[in-house]
Amino acid sequence: MIQIEQISKSYNAHAALKQASFKVDRGELFGLIGPDGAGKTTLIRILMTLLLPDSGKAHIGQWDVVKDYRKIRQHVGYMPGNFSLYRDLTVEENLRFFASVFGTNIKTHYHLIKPIYEQIEPFKNRRAEKLSGGMKQKLALSCSLIHRPELLLLDEPTTGVDAVSRQEFWQMLGTMKEHGITVLVSTPYMEEADLCDRVALIQNGEILEVASPKNIVDHFSSHLYRIKGKERLGLINALRSLSLFTKVYPFGEYIHCTSDEAVEPVVISQQLGQLGMDEIVIEAALPGIEDRFIELMA
């Protein structure tokens, strides 16, 4: 559905995308995952034909993002990162407006948005600016689906949205598959990778890896241990002073330590004991997407 080949884009001296390449299959829920400034928005805007690449090629279906921009704009749904609706129009007026722009009406593809739109329908006469964050997202998604696009491009739809609304939003994205709609969604939250069929990890304009969430974690090539104790800072410094680990970094309640060779937890605990550190929990740990991301960054 999407083919990106060696796309580069610079803003003055800053290289926002460096020869990015990957493919998204038809019907996939595909995640573009990376921190702020990684190049996610630039890539999505190029795919949406709002920005021209400096070099490289990209296609959506058989359409070229430079030459066939009219076709792409007709057949792709887009939800930009900032709230993209008309604040002074009501919920229903927004939906009707977007439908009319695409030469359709609310009824034709209503079945597609029904489960989402029904949740905000009680507020259909409310102005868009008066909606809560979660409801705005639902309306924006409804508007981007009203012309039954083949592909949906969502730029950080869950940034700044609370946990409950985020969960609901991802459930809605999951249902797009039933309608045969391909979804490319960007997010800075690593933990959202698990909700995608496949993801591309992006950092500093470079695609670091493209795979299913499970395979990304499987590619983690070190041994990983999670360690917990009372004095976190002291413990981090102590662990770094041992010659056992390649990396030591905080990870939520734990400290994650990586090593090339397997290390017995009892050896770690003995060496920490010699430094006067006790009551330490040491366990072999399963890596997550963030561990792999850190490994790829270094």
Binding site: P35, D36, A38, L233, I236, Y249, E290, F293, I294, M297
Partner: peptide, 19 residues
């Protein structure tokens, strides 16, 4: 929104301030 490595450096700064 910050990358995973910077984020951890940031938390280490917080730990240091707390200590």
């Amino acid at each position: 929104g910050v990358d995973p490595i910077t984020r951890r450096q940031f938390w280490e700064m917080i730990y240091a301030a707390a200590s």
